[in-house]
């Protein structure tokens, strides 16, 4: 392969990876924006999304087949199902903790993450599950570079989801309420906004996006497992911080940048693939040290 081919190939890989990161990062950033909670369980929501998608697909593929029709239906259903799971988690675990010290709610989030992780592990006996789809491997080849249609559709699907999210945040009442709550929750209460309801909607949307990413990952990699959420959770958080936590365009941008960085970073000769997670964490730490507000984040002004 020529250098140009390598660059193109890594660009394609990076975009796919970045799409997953972005979708998961959005959930982090939305929840953080609205209740200042670092939702540790979010990576596991993505994983649960993949498994729910797996279960739904096994039913749906009997009716609609395992082509794109089946997958789109599966994805939509999974997003709704996981969205509600997110709302239920928020209702049971987070809502009672909103006034508690930060440390308590962080530990609560951690506990939720561990519960999801270990629950899926014991249900699946810790096995990999094959995510069988019938999409074939057609694609376009450019020189040595081969990009499948699946890859292209996945990246476009991410773009579509993000556009919908953008419209939702900026054009709907819920979106406006979300932004308002992230600025001043008490004032919103006084203005008659049902804050709890808006928080629930935020969890729904964030979880649904993670589920979409989970199903897409299943389609792309062909198999899923209970620990798939751990590392992506960390990386998506990195992406969210990179873009500026709380900023929605930031999360999208951060995800893509991290995907590309990782994809090109592992091409550096002495960084083997076993070090690729170290690479991402290293970026996170450097970022937090030198630019904790991220690319599009704003400095927080604390009121005395």
């Amino acid at each position: 392969m020529s250098n140009l081919d390598i660059i193109l190939q890594q660009l394609a890989n990076g975009l796919i990876l970045g799409s997953f990161y972005s979708l998961v990062a959005l959930g982090y950033t939305m929840v953080y924006g609205i209740i200042k909670l670092l939702n540790f369980a979010h990576g596991d929501i993505y994983m649960v999304g993949a498994f729910i998608g797996f279960s739904i697909l096994s039913v749906v593929s009997g009716i609609l087949g395992d082509g794109w029709t089946g997958i789109v239906a599966t994805m939509a259903l999974s997003m709704i199902a996981v969205g509600f799971i997110g709302v239920i988690i928020q209702r049971i675990a987070y809502r009672p903790m909103l006034q508690a010290p930060r440390l308590s709610i962080l530990i609560t989030a951690l506990a939720v993450s561990l519960i999801l992780y270990n629950l899926v592990m014991s249900i699946t006996d810790g096995e990999f599950k094959a995510f069988t789809v019938g999409l074939g491997y057609e694609g376009i080849s450019m020189g040595e570079v081969y990009i499948t249609f699946t890859q292209m559709v996945l990246v476009s699907a991410t773009a579509v989801l993000m556009t919908i999210l953008h419209l939702f945040i900026n054009k709907t009442m819920y979106g406006k309420a979300m932004r308002a709550i992230s600025i001043d929750q008490d004032a919103c209460r006084l203005m008659g906004i049902d804050v709890n309801r808006v928080i629930a909607v935020t969890f729904f949307v964030g979880s649904a996006l993670a589920a979409a990413a989970g199903v897409m990952a299943g389609v792309y990699y062909g198999s899923i497992h209970f620990f798939m959420g751990f590392v992506i959770g960390l990386k998506a958080f990195t992406a969210a911080v990179m873009g500026g936590i709380g900023s929605i365009p930031g999360a999208m941008l951060g995800g893509l940048i991290l995907g590309l960085l990782e994809s090109f970073g592992t091409q550096i000769p002495f960084i083997g693939s076993e070090w690729k997670d170290v690479f991402a964490f290293g970026i996170l730490i450097l970022l937090l040290v030198f630019k904790p507000t991220g690319l599009l984040g704003r400095t927080e002004i604390e009121r005395m």
């Binding site: 670092l38 930060r102 962080l106 083997g272 076993e274 170290v278 904790p292």
Partner: peptide, 28 residues
């Protein structure tokens, strides 16, 4: 040193990452 200046939740995630780095380094 660098992370304690930041919000406490950042520390949580950085320590998580650090824990993984140490384990991966020990493995490799």
């Amino acid at each position: 040193g660098p992370t304690l200046r930041l919000r406490s939740d950042y520390l949580a995630i950085v320590t998580l990452g650090f824990g993984e780095i140490v384990r991966i380094a020990a493995r490799n």
